[in-house]
Design a protein around this nucleic acid. Structure first.
Lengths: 153, 153
DNA sequence: TATGAAAGTTTTAAATA
DNA sequence: TATTTAAAACTTTCATA
């Protein structure tokens, strides 16, 4: 599972994150190497699971996803059965972009992207009808002031 | 800024999000069209800003980013000068993956990825020394149970 | 690590519905 | 106007030095 990375590997990852559309030649030039070693390292990092997927990031607002909520959840249930049910519910709902189990007072946080407040309410009603939660607080985003997938390698 | 999308455009976006490594031929086959129209639509959506960037998603844990915090911030300052300063501070810090300005009681939420709790503390101390904030609560993620960049188009 | 050649892909242009 | 066909330029992939 663990892959040892050297300096060149890291430089390649920086390039891939910043612009996934570059050719091998461009990347090789940017990192001061040549095609074959860059290609072999990328393959290895893909196989090792460091590189997970190639994707295109879209503009959520341009596509009509105009509301984003962070949802703080407290539950009184902590057994495995409840957890599994909750996880299934989250995975089945594509508007849930992120979900984390937390340490401390609040048990879960979700990031939910929907068209508008009404669509959030539909999501919320569906969720609480499927799994029992003790307390839910929704934080409405007024403005996304920063958003990146680039890890500071 | 607004781009009108038809059914075929949406199908193409689904493909690009799900697997950004497919060839035009593959995408064309998947959406029931052929290379050139698919290519022209992708170009238009890129120019129109619907498609923002092509990237590779990496495994944060494999790269040693083992801690993720959601940071809830309340401030007593609401003038434009403070906001600008705060925004600059966030943009200058690569460990801030996301930042939203919120409606209501809590003013901002950040998502911060760091190597460990000590690295979070370094980040936190640096932030509060740069900008005045009234109250900060950090929620520590124990487990990322879902994470996707795929918008449910 | 470098070279290079075969297979595959993107991009542009021209022809057609 | 949008699609199909076709061909040039470029890229990936992999064998061999």
């Amino acid at each position: 599972m663990t892959v040892r990375l050297d300096d060149l590997d890291r430089k390649i990852l920086v390039q891939l994150q910043e612009d996934g559309g570059q050719s091998l030649d461009d990347i090789a030039k940017a990192v001061g190497s040549s095609k074959t070693p860059v290609w072999n390292r990328i393959r290895k990092m893909r196989e090792g699971g460091v590189i997970r997927q190639q994707t295109y990031l879209l503009d959520a607002e341009a596509l009509g996803f105009e509301a984003c909520f962070f949802v703080l959840i407290r539950t009184s249930e902590h057994d495995a059965g409840w957890q599994g049910q909750f996880l299934n519910a989250l995975n089945a709902r594509p508007e849930v972009m992120e979900a984390h189990r937390l340490a401390g007072d609040i048990d879960y946080i979700l990031k939910v992207r929907v068209a508008n407040a009404r669509a959030y309410d539909v999501f919320y009603q569906a969720l609480i009808s499927e799994v029992k939660v003790h307390n839910v607080t929704a934080l409405l985003s007024m403005e996304e002031i920063k958003s990146t997938t680039i890890l500071p390698i």
